[in-house]
Design a protein around this nucleic acid. Structure first.
Length: 594
RNA sequence: GCGCCUGUAGCUCAAUCGGAUAGAGCAUCAGCCUUCUAAGCUGAGGGUAGCAGGUUCGAAUCCUGCCAGGCGCGCCA
């Protein structure tokens, strides 16, 4: 394990704050002093181009308009007023009134030296920790996990990690589907196999997907079996002991499958995070009752519905949220309402995040609206659907096996590891078999996850083995390689904790470039925590890895003279720390060599 | 029919609350290994931002209309 962990000694008080926030505060004060109203947004952001400095404040144009004065004149006054003596080496006005800020190397050097002594690498814990409930993964247990579950699982887990790192109290909710009509069929099939022996049943359940297919086939071809299956749905719902036992056996087996996938993917979900659909069964009649008491319920064509004005269907007709079927059965909207109330009330959530397929947008919008109207959720609680697109094959159609079936996650992981193994063996044949296997595991799984995380989640995305396992470009292998290069420097120099001394002193352009990115880590992490777009963290880490590669080419470390050698070693150490932590927040594990 | 999402380089994708000359990677071409891992680095070419209007000092971003694709829309989840 690389010593990316921080210095144990903390010299004096250190209150990390991200640069953007710091500049925002300074400029807010300056704008007021310059005569702008207190609510003026200084619009501090990272500069788009190097010639515009490191940060820019763009608020002068808008504020000048309100004040009816020339924007450059306001910018002048702001620059006069702003106190940046400690941190900027240049503040310039450009164009119509942009204020460009170049940070001083001294200040940057000090920030980095401090971040190095901080276990959190300069990321401050949130001032007000929130209770954040995160609904993600949530596979249906009738079948094995397949590629359709990947995005929710991977993206949700990354966001969970980020939120916890920021200091929030996170409650994972794996809302697995373990109830509904198809389970009658599966139970009937279990029973049938049991009569031919326990061993055969166990074997059949190994391949859950095949199990489902066989049951379905029987269901479609054998009317007697179909009748039994339908009867079992009813018995199950009535709490029949025998059916429940078979059902539990099935659920248990299926959950075991999921857990093996989570384990291999390095996903933090545990059995204790499961709050299955069936867990809300007893609460469903109460949901209906409460909706009725609120006067929200109306009957339509025999079904119990909630009609809300904001939802219109065809020809402006009212669009119902059906919460109880005409036969008395409940639907997933009912379960979701029960779940949302549990999360808001029992779990006291400040935010509830749903990492759910974009196709459920309307459904969730309706559930959120009904829940609010019914008072299940306080106004102060934020309900957020974070949708994502579908994973497509290289032909632009939903990703399938060659035979046209769904791709099981275990198969996907197997193939990723195999392909990674082939690459490692080719690139680095000197490593032992065991080492290559271990590297292939990290690289293969890391590549799968990174391919998913690095894209803006809203769009559909094209899954391609080639781009994913490519060794260059914005991929997991590239980031992992950057990290191993640092590890290699430390190995080569035989460096232990005691060898890291002195402080970071930014001199070369490549050092400055790298240092500036390192100092921005907290900005990215905070943004991801707020907006739930892990691809921002990916592209940051990619930039960081790139900046390190350039630094590596331009600035010798071990061969440098003091004090540059010490400074560069510390820069390497901080880079390793940020890469390690950043990848960890994405759920990707680093390796020491590859 | 109504609603939601999307349309950026040949391909895969970015772009912070509207900000300056729209950026990467792949692929193509040209360079760099007696020097800390070349799974790397440097450089070149490649764009009517779907189309047309509008708002604005300023639009890939906001608004309107059209075109194209995907998805959703009463008793599955």
């Amino acid at each position: 394990m690389l010593q990316c962990a921080p210095y144990p000694l903390l010299l004096g008080p250190y209150f990390p704050m991200n640069i953007r926030t710091l500049l925002d505060q300074r400029f807010r004060a300056a704008f007021q002093q310059a005569g702008a109203p207190p609510e003026t947004n200084p619009q501090v952001q990272q500069s788009g181009r190097p010639e515009f400095g490191d940060y820019q404040a763009n608020g002068a144009m808008a504020a000048a308009k309100a004040l009816r004065m020339p924007p450059r004149a306001l910018a002048e006054k702001v620059v006069q007023a702003v106190d940046l003596q400690d941190l900027a080496e240049r503040v310039e006005i450009a164009g119509p009134g942009f204020i460009n800020i170049t940070l001083s190397k001294t200040w940057l050097s000090r920030q980095l030296s401090e971040a190095l002594r901080d276990a959190r690498l300069g990321v401050a814990p949130v001032e007000h920790a929130q209770n954040i409930v995160v609904d993600y993964s949530s596979p249906n247990l009738a079948k094995e996990m397949h590629v359709g579950h990947l995005r929710s699982t991977i993206i949700g887990d990354a966001v969970v990690r980020v939120l916890e790192f920021l200091g929030h109290r996170v409650v994972r909710q794996n809302h697995v589907g373990d109830w509904g009509t198809q389970f009658g069929m599966l139970i009937a099939y279990i029973e049938r196999l049991r009569t031919s022996g326990e061993a055969q049943l166990t074997l059949a359940l190994e391949d859950l997907e095949g199990f489902y297919r066989s049951a379905k086939q029987l269901f479609d071809s054998d009317p007697a079996f179909a009748d039994t299956a339908r009867a079992y749905v009813v018995k199950l719902q009535q709490g029949d002991a025998h059916c429940l036992e078979l059902w539990k056996h099935f659920i248990d087996t299926s959950m075991g499958h999921c857990e093996r996938v989570y384990e291999r993917l390095g996903v933090t979900l545990r059995r204790t995070d499961v709050k299955a659909e069936s867990a809300y069964n007893s609460d469903l009649p109460r949901v209906i009752d409460d909706l009725r008491k609120q006067g929200l319920l109306s009957e339509s064509e025999g079904a119990q519905c909630v009609f809300l004005d904001e939802f219109k269907g065809k020809d402006d007709s009212p669009l119902p949220v059906i919460v109880q079927k005409s036969d008395g059965g409940y639907l997933y909207a009912t379960t979701d309402l029960a779940a949302i109330r549990y999360r808001a009330k029992d779990l006291a959530a400040d935010r509830v995040l749903y990492f759910v397929d974009a196709r459920q947008s309307l459904h969730l919008k309706q559930v959120f609206a009904v829940a609010r109207r019914a008072g299940f959720v306080a106004d102060s609680c934020s309900l957020e659907h974070h949708p994502f697109g579908t994973m497509m094959g290289e032909d632009g159609k939903p990703f399938k096996t060659r035979a046209g079936g769904t791709v099981k996650l275990v198969d996907l992981i197997d193939e990723a590891e195999q392909r990674a193994y082939a690459v490692v063996s080719e690139k680095n044949p000197g490593l032992s078999e065991g080492e290559r296997r271990a590297i292939a595991r990290s690289v293969g799984v890391g590549a799968v996850k990174y391919a998913d995380l690095s894209k803006n989640r809203i769009n559909d995305y094209i899954f391609s083995w080639n781009t994913m396992l490519a060794l260059d470009g914005n991929t997991a292998p590239y980031l992992l390689y950057a990290y191993t290069r640092i590890a290699s420097i430390f190995r080569r120099g035989e460096l232990g904790d005691s060898h890291f001394t002195g402080h970071i002193d930014i001199i070369e352009p490549a050092e400055r470039n790298l240092g500036l990115l390192l100092a921005r880590f907290s900005e990215v992490v905070e943004t991801v925590g707020a907006d739930c777009y892990p691809n921002l963290l990916c592209s940051y880490l990619y930039d960081l890895a790139g900046a390190f590669m350039q630094f590596y080419e331009a600035c010798p470390v071990l061969k440098a003279d003091e004090p540059a050698r010490s400074s560069r070693l510390l820069l390497c150490r901080l880079t390793a720390g940020v890469l390690h932590r950043g990848l960890d927040l994405l759920g990707i594990e680093t390796i020491e060599q590859m």
